[in-house]
Design a protein around this nucleic acid. Structure first.
Length: 506
RNA sequence: GGCGGCGUAGCUCAGCUGGUUAGAGCAUUCGGCUCAUAAUCGAAAGGUCGGCGGUUCGAGCCCGCCCGCCGCUACCA
């Protein structure tokens, strides 16, 4: 299966907090998928970025005595730094405070309004002056016998009526259901798709898209007294980056090949609001939205266990960037929540990386050195490993496209295990140098070559290292699957280098 | 309350439209090997497939009830 062209996104991260493993989880998964598609020869655009608007940012900036622009841009840099650290291959990095985004948001809003899906209305709510925010009655608490108090400021909220513009989400129930019905894979995994369906079927209500009480945001084109409130601002970033309203040709090139990678907390906005907004503008909804769960530490959501936060830099210092990437991709499959622990990282690092992959490279190189004069022989066309490799390639390819990186890596490791067993069975270290030993070692080298191609999206740097140890020229990332992962690609006659352990045991 | 999902070896999980002795990885035990990062290979052990009842020639997979756990139930980024 070839996709041909794909536009991948991560959410834009709110610059209110520093990047942690949760962000890394989403971003690394999206990155590996993007790299897999490049390996397939697909034309790929991969976007990530940061969300700069909203009251929290405005407040935090004020508290710091800075403009929201300066404050948010500085915090945004931390996310760019994290991307560099984690070897993220994004083609663009968007900030919602950029002029291009203001242009695209204004264009989209005007278009939706012209199509008749934005109306003026009044937003009535319980407003806390201290928070400058509205609350739902269920959020309020009782303080000293006084009901309806703000949970933060512990004082009564006020009933306020504010002029707002509303997006007529209610007009899109049928269209959204029809879209999901016609595109069973539009939302993955199925459990999340069901949630979306349930939500839509329960009835959709229009939502407010503007605020006149906030100044840090994008003004509405037809009423500059209001700034855009959340949805049209944040979600539109995906369209901004490919030129919505500014470069029609470019936009048409990439839309709607877009695949969004999002956490389950923002599922509804991406699977209901966003498609409806696009439809309202006469545009097509996203091709796919991949919803993942949360990393848990001791059963608790990462972001809520403040003291227990783990930062990518610390993990990278201890295990190396590629090992961290591998772990994030392999340990918790996309979809459900999963436990993240230091012990878990160590265990998987030792078993998968040090004992299996790293050690296979080491033992193979040593035997080639001792029995083949350090020159890697060519594999046999009819090697028993050839059939395994073919199955693995098929499984791995399918898994990356689901997309389930964890499943893809698990399938890849099968070839590593089979190769270790193959070496055991043939025990080339016992035999005298000759055609038999050459054949076995050629097979092992070929299996390693294939494993390394298939693993490159997950661990680009280590795999390039292995690529060179095998004596192969060029860049592993320049290889193209499936051709480059088919049996028989190792030419033989190349100098094999052992080198130091790729993954020293912990 | 409503809607949805989950509960399978010590741990993390696979098990498509029901069909011979229920699978994988890790962990454990035993044995082999010694090329390798005390890595690796083989074998074994380990499960009343949450419980009860039903449909069926036959159910982990279908139906009903029960127990336990979780998610969503909107303008919070």
């Amino acid at each position: 299966m070839t996709v041909g062209r794909i536009y991948l996104t991560t959410p834009i991260y709110y610059v209110n907090a520093a990047p942690h493993v949760g962000h890394a989880y989403t971003t690394v998964n999206a990155d590996a998928i993007a790299r897999w598609h490049r390996l397939m020869g697909d034309e790929v655009m991969f976007l990530t970025g940061t969300d700069h608007h909203g009251l929290k940012i405005q407040r935090a900036a004020e508290a710091a005595g800075e403009s929201p622009q300066v404050w948010s841009d500085r915090n945004s840099q931390a996310f760019e730094d994290a991307n560099v650290l984690l070897n993220i291959s994004n083609d663009d990095f968007i900030r919602t405070s950029e002029p291009r985004h203001y242009e695209s948001v204004a264009w989209l809003l005007q278009r939706v309004k012209d199509n008749g899906f934005i109306r003026k209305g009044t937003y009535e709510g319980l407003y806390c002056v201290g928070c400058e925010a509205y609350y739902e009655p269920s959020d309020l608490i009782e303080v000293n016998g006084e009901p309806n108090c703000c949970p933060i400021h512990k004082r009564p909220v006020e009933f306020v009526v504010e002029d707002n513009y509303f997006f007529e989400l209610s007009a899109f129930e049928d269209k959204l259901l029809a879209w999901l019905d016609a595109n069973p894979d539009a939302v993955t995994p199925v459990s999340k798709r069901n949630e979306v369906l349930g939500f839509i079927k329960s009835g959709l209500r229009d939502f407010s898209i503007s605020r006149s009480s906030i100044s840090w945001g994008i003004p509405l084109p037809w009423d500059p007294e209001h700034v855009t409130y959340v949805w049209f601002d944040a979600l539109t970033n995906y369209a901004t980056a490919v030129g919505l309203g500014r470069d029609q040709e470019r936009f048409d090139h990439w839309w709607p090949t877009v695949h969004h990678m999002v956490g389950k907390d923002i599922l509804r906005f991406h699977c209901v609001y966003w498609p409806a907004m696009l439809m309202a503008a006469g545009l097509l909804p996203p091709q796919q939205i991949n919803v993942h769960g949360f990393l848990l530490i001791g059963g608790e959501k990462l972001s809520k266990t403040g003291f227990a936060q783990i930062y990518p830099q610390d993990l990278a210092d201890e295990f190396g960037v590629d090992a961290v990437r591998y772990h994030l991709l392999r340990e918790v499959p996309l979809g459900a929540d999963g436990e993240f622990s230091h012990e878990g990282v160590v265990a998987r690092y030792n078993s998968d990386l040090a004992n299996n992959y790293g050690n296979l490279v080491a033992r193979t190189a040593t035997v080639v050195e001792k029995k083949c004069g350090g020159v890697g022989p060519a594999p046999r066309a009819d090697s028993p490993l050839a059939a395994v490799a073919a199955e693995v390639l098929a499984d791995v390819s399918a898994a990356w496209l689901e997309p389930l990186p964890a499943k893809a890596l698990e399938a890849t490791w099968r070839l590593i295990r089979e190769t270790n067993a193959y070496l055991e069975q043939n025990a080339p270290w016992k035999a005298d140098p000759g055609p038999e030993v050459d054949a076995v070692m050629g097979d092992a080298l070929e299996a390693l070559r294939i494993v390394t191609v298939l693993t490159a999206p997950a661990m680009p740097t280590i795999c390039q290292d292995v690529w060179e140890r095998l004596g192969l020229p060029g860049q592993v990332l320049d290889q193209r699957v499936p051709a480059a992962a088919m049996w028989g690609g190792y030419p033989g006659g190349l100098t094999v280098t052992k080198g130091t352990p790729l993954f020293p045991r912990k």
